[in-house]
């Protein structure tokens, strides 16, 4: 299977999972009642999504030059990590079982993708726009800080250091997935685990929105925990990477909460943010108004029939 085929398959599975989650967690009623507000909401949230997109583009550009740069300025911490945690990951793999391997492989690829994508959809549909803004900002902080860490810290994961004790279970079990992960990440980018930090971020945000989406909290918690374990179980990350990921999640959520806090209204930072927003808002408003006109015209036409 080629990379494109794999990507198509993952997208299909994730879309399917989101649809199921949409019915189960969000509820059909909420989706229906959202429709008239869709454009206005999109206009409100778009700058945040744009920020996230920019961070992602910057992230992927930096990752291309990252390893090269790392070897010049970065700290080599593989030895330090193994000195502290020793063979913890190998011990974890003692409990390897084909069923567990299959479970964690799917969690690592599909579960993780779903975990990240679902809140964006779910929070977009909420009347309260703070969760979606928090999510976009928290994701952005994760990726931005993560890529800086990848430049500053160079470490190989367990499978590259102790291949006799730690099996690269994901790739022996599911070789094609290596095409994807090697595309996304260099093998010296292990500290911190972005899989863990983003999953933990989602879980904490799920806790903050437990009243709006009570079912999402347990699902997100189980998935996030599984993702964190999977990174170690599959021999990709060290326990220290996972701890680093949890710390990064804490920083990201705290940063996002602080930045979106209503208490900050009127502060210089808030005003700066608004000015920045205005730059994006004007062309965006124009585009959306155009789309709005069209859909109204369409509505009128169907109405006249």
């Amino acid at each position: 299977m080629t990379l494109t085929a794999l990507l198509v398959r993952i997208s299909l599975v994730v879309v399917l999972m989101i649809l199921v989650g949409g019915v189960g967690v969000i509820g059909v009623g909420r989706i229906r009642s959202f429709r008239p507000h869709a454009l206005r909401r999109l206009r409100l949230v778009a700058p945040y999504l744009l920020l996230l997109a920019l961070v992602l583009v910057g992230n992927s550009l930096l990752r291309d030059v990252g390893p090269e740069l790392s070897w010049i300025i970065g700290w080599r911490i593989t030895g330090w990590i193994t000195g502290i945690e020793g063979t913890f990951v190998a011990t974890l793999q003692h409990y390897a079982h084909p069923a567990l391997t299959a479970y964690f492989s799917y969690i690592y690829i599909y579960g993780y993708s779903f975990l990240l994508a679902f809140p964006v959809v779910a929070y977009f549909l909420l009347p309260d726009d703070r969760p979606i803004r928090e999510t976009a900002i928290a994701y952005s902080i994760n990726y931005a800080v993560g890529v800086v860490c990848y430049v500053l810290f160079i470490a190989y994961g367990p499978r590259n250091v102790m291949p006799d004790m730690v099996d690269q279970l994901l790739y022996t079990n599911w070789p094609e997935s290596h095409l994807l992960t090697s595309e996304v990440n260099a093998n010296v980018n292990v500290f911190p685990s972005l899989h863990t930090s983003l999953s933990a971020t989602v879980a904490v945000l799920a806790y903050r929105t437990r009243e709006q989406y009570p079912y999402w909290l347990p699902i997100a918690t189980v998935l996030a925990g599984s993702v964190a374990v999977s990174t170690m179980y599959l021999g990709i990350h060290w326990a220290i990477d996972v701890l680093g990921g949890v710390a990064l999640a804490a920083i990201s959520v705290a940063g996002a909460v602080w930045l979106t806090s209503p208490d900050r209204r009127g502060t210089p930072l808030d005003r700066a943010g608004r000015r920045l927003r205005a730059v994006v808002d004007r062309p965006l408003a124009y585009l959306l108004a155009l789309a709005d006109d069209r859909s109204q015209e369409a509505d009128e036409r169907t109405g006249s029939d």
């Binding site: 790739y171 290596h178 095409l179």
Partner: peptide, 15 residues
Amino acid sequence: VPSDETAIELLAAGD
């Protein structure tokens, strides 16, 4: 390719 395991998969698929 990222690994020999992946290469075997691609080889088997005729790629």
